[in-house]
């Protein structure tokens, strides 16, 4: 019996590692390229071992552009992303509770409106939106990046939270109500703790999407001192003449690190959901 269990464990871990290698091959490739001299990145590019380790790629990449280093970009990204994550957690939890638990009139049509906004490609609303933000004086500030998060600009998260809240048994609300809890009290003390796994998911996604997005900052930020990491990465590449590939890969690797850290930090709340969600079905 014990032996069979051992074999099972070996198969489990073994197969996960083999598929896992496929999953992270691109990371290895990126790391390898970030250490290669320029003339090896595209020649014999399948090789994962650089002939010499060119650490200067990292130094050169971090140096940035004309005295504006990646320290600035990382700080900027850190600020913007933190604000967006906070805003998204705040707005998506609140709005989702409203849709999922409060039976107000027009809630279905409003919900439909929200889902519909997801279906219009952003390319065609970009220009009117720019003009709007320009008239508000928000161009070249972080407002167009941050404010939408606070006002539920990503219905994806709201919908996600709605689905999770709908999965929580009603008896809990009712019991809390009997104990004299207000609606907000129910939200704050009963529902919110139970949605920890969902909130962790929202945090991970909103972090990654914001960190990775270069289009919005590119359109709305003019002053290079305000630029984010994703924009910094894009500034290495110019297919019409020369691109700085080595430094670009180096900074790509650097840019992945915070995302990994955030993921590892929040994923433990995914697990903690077990105990918190340990309510009867």
């Amino acid at each position: 019996m014990k032996r069979r269990k051992n074999i099972k464990t070996v198969i489990y871990h073994g197969s996960i590692w083999i598929i896992g290698l496929l999953m992270i091959y691109p990371i290895f490739w990126t790391i390898a390229s970030s250490l290669k001299p320029e003339n090896e990145i595209f020649r014999n590019s399948a090789s994962l071992i650089p002939s010499i380790f060119k650490w200067e790629n990292y130094a050169q990449g971090w140096q940035g552009f004309g005295g504006l280093s990646f320290s600035t970009f990382f700080l900027n990204s850190g600020f913007v992303t933190t604000m967006v994550v906070i805003g998204t957690l705040f707005s998506s939890a609140l709005v989702a509770f409203g849709f999922a638990r409060v039976k107000f009139r027009f809630r279905t049509p409003l919900f439909v409106c929200m889902i519909i906004t997801l279906m219009l490609p952003s390319q065609v609303t970009l220009i009117p939106q720019y003009i709007l933000f320009h008239n508000l004086g928000w161009v070249n500030t972080y407002m167009p990046l941050i404010v939408p998060a606070f006002i539920g600009g990503t219905p994806f998260f709201i919908f996600l939270m709605i689905q999770f809240i709908r999965g929580i048994p009603h008896e809990l609300d009712e019991a809390a109500y009997m104990d004299g809890c207000s609606t907000f009290g129910i939200f704050w003390r009963v529902i919110l703790p139970l949605t920890t796994p969902a909130l962790a998911t929202v945090a991970i996604f909103s972090f990654y999407w914001t960190w990775d997005d270069f289009m919005t900052p590119l359109i709305y930020l003019n002053d290079t001192k305000l630029y984010t990491v994703a924009l910094g990465l894009q500034m290495f590449s110019d297919p019409s003449s020369v691109s700085a590939w080595g430094p670009m890969f180096a900074m790509s690797v650097a840019s992945i690190l915070p995302q990994l850290l955030i993921f590892m930090f929040f994923q433990k709340y995914l697990v903690e959901g077990i105990t918190a969600g340990g309510v009867k079905g």
């Binding site: 709005v95 509770f97 409203g98 409060v102 107000f104 539920g152 709201i158 609606t183 939200f187």
Partner: peptide, 9 residues
């Protein structure tokens, strides 16, 4: 109450 909750959006 409902509108208050969905107000941000």
């Amino acid at each position: 109450v409902g509108l208050a909750f969905i107000a941000p959006w």
